[in-house]
Design a protein around this nucleic acid. Sequence first.
DNA 1: TTTCTGTACTAATCA
DNA 2: AGTACAGAAA
Length: 757
Amino acid sequence: MDYLDNLNEPQLEGVMNTGGPCMIIAGAGSGKTRVLTMRIAHLIKAKGVDPFHILALTFTNKAAKEMRDRIEGVVGNEARNIWMGTFHSIFARILRAEGGKLGYPGNFTIYDTEDSKSLIKSIVKEKGLDDKVYKPNTVLNRISAAKNRLVSWQEYLSNPIYLADDESAMKPEVGNIYRIYADRCFKASAMDFDDLLFNTNILFRDHLDVLNKYQQRFKYVLVDEFQDTNLSQYLITKKLAAVHQNICVVGDDAQSIYAFRGADIQNILNFEKDYADLRVIKLEQNYRSTQNIVEAANSVINKNRAQLKKNVWTQNTQGDLIEVIKATSDNEEGKLVASTIFEERMHHQLSYTDFAVLYRTNSQSRAIEEALRRNNVKYKIIGGLSFYQRKEIKDILAYLRFAINQHDEQALRRIINLPKRGIGPASVDKVVVAAYEHDMSIWEVLENIHSFISGRTANAIADFVTMIKAFKLEIERKDAFEAATHIAKNSGILRALYEDKTIEGLNRYENVQELLNAIKEYVDNPENEDKTLGAFLQEIALLTSVDQDNNEDNELVTLMTIHMAKGLEFKYIFVVGMEEDLFPSQMMLTSRADLEEERRLFYVAITRAKAKLYLSYALNRYRFGRLKNCEPSRFLEDIDPQFIKVNRLFKGSEANNFNPVGQVQGTHSRYAKNLVNSIRKTSGPTSQNYHKPGKDFIPSDTSGLTEGMKVEHAKFGFGVVTMMDNLGANRKAKVNFENFGEKTLLLSFAKLKIHDS
DNA sequence: TTTCTGTACTAATCA
DNA sequence: AGTACAGAAA
């Protein structure tokens, strides 16, 4: 049993005691993943448990994959059969199989946050409400919070407390928006992220046969990062484990940082009450960090009131003191971080992969990136605007989604006029109204468009429907890669991007090629059994940002938010932007609970560091394009001063000398841009040199217009027709004007008087 | 219906 | 510093 070697006593206990309910409280860096993986390996290898009977829930696909790989190292191929994945992906899988009982087809779409927000936006608009009051973000958060507490729209609308809350927030219509939102999602055969958990709860509540099936199947249930579960997730796991009672949760209350999406720290604090025979194991020895870092972290977290008693300690060396860097501006902060990374790496012969820069908000990455680039330090960013959130990628994905599910309203709105095919928002509204009036689905109206509207738009819509039907067939007959390539080409999207020869256009074209490559890779990967487009879409809909990290071996500094860094470790950690209103965020200062969550976030940041921790702040920072004064964060004072080396001072010259490129920073580009704008404003034709037509100016019928005719335009004056374009829906004429040169005019709009007969 | 342009607003964290 | 939106012009 060599996999049991090198485990300390509580770790061993966590691995060996596999029967009955168990909670493992694991301090930062105490080897909790190791315990969890070895526990599963032990179940399979020593206890002879069939991997099909084990359910292990994690928060990222990456964590799941890592655990699976490590288990595979002990038990071999069998590890593939464990039900292991994120809450969302496991229950999406179950809902694909069982969702029919709730009225959802197996090919339901998963709406991402952008889809949800734009749906809410259109509902607010349709109801004629003020979109300044009903901001999509606010409304969605409210709906999301309700779903995470398992409050349906019916319960929401009949609960006087919620209604009073909304009333006092001057948003009395939120409940009704929730009702319409839920209805529209259902009609679109779509579930948002919260629905995946909400509907699983409904499924298990209303269909006991289904619940029973999965209760029998999952003899062992394990949950990682338990402190981050919300009520919805908690109830699912509790229900699934109710028959066999073999539930093991692993977590650290000090690292609970997802209250904003409904995570409830009470789940971990109250777990003991739920299970009378609960075995509690505490992992308190930290193997990751130096003594200084561990104790500095302890001194911070002790400022919080709500926590379980535990004592994290380490046998590691004392290590360096924490250093605080003070910068005058966010640009200088970036520069100091870059130069420090450069020096430390040289001095200690480290790899760039040993460094990570952590920040509170994604927008802070820009200044750091710029400085790293200037100093030729290669870096990678985790999270932020990810590949799959790019517009051109989402456009293609919307086509794929719609070809699979014609009820997907958000995908339809995205693609129906992309590339431009003459179906503008006015036409889309007509279709939606028609669908509403005749109690039909939008797709049914589109299919029979000639019974509702006529003319050019109707033809364009009919062509669109024909195209989608062809794509449908393609998907049924071919694998994901062939189908996606066909759709990208025949939808006209690829061509439109190809014709855009700007740098951004080129990039976008390459991104789409990259997406197709990714699909090819997916199809070629033998681990993926289901090679349909639907399976691929499901996979990427539930990708977590940490998962999209495919160049791990390169010499790169890692940049990410503190949230993304949870569960990771680096030798050197830089936490930047240690300023009031930024970290802690000004939005978290309203209650003690919020501030404590923010402090736990700081605790997570500190405990990522193995060898050395740098904290930095700037006295001035650009926000919304304006320079703002900043104060050092209160969290700096939370650290016991004995672990801090007080302000490491950089002389201005030292920092400047480091810059090997020596470019002038600051407002230069802004200034240049303003200059260009002002030039553009003062040049070009202004209203006074436009032609003034005589009083008898009456536009002629231009249907007989031909080349060589002399015409008068209301603004451009006299000119000669040089070329006619009678092709396509819009007739165009090229006219060479005496005072304004050659212009292309759309004849359905341009008012021309013909002076040639 | 489409395209261009000025401006108003924004950025908290994630699946 | 970006971008989403409204309004004008074509």
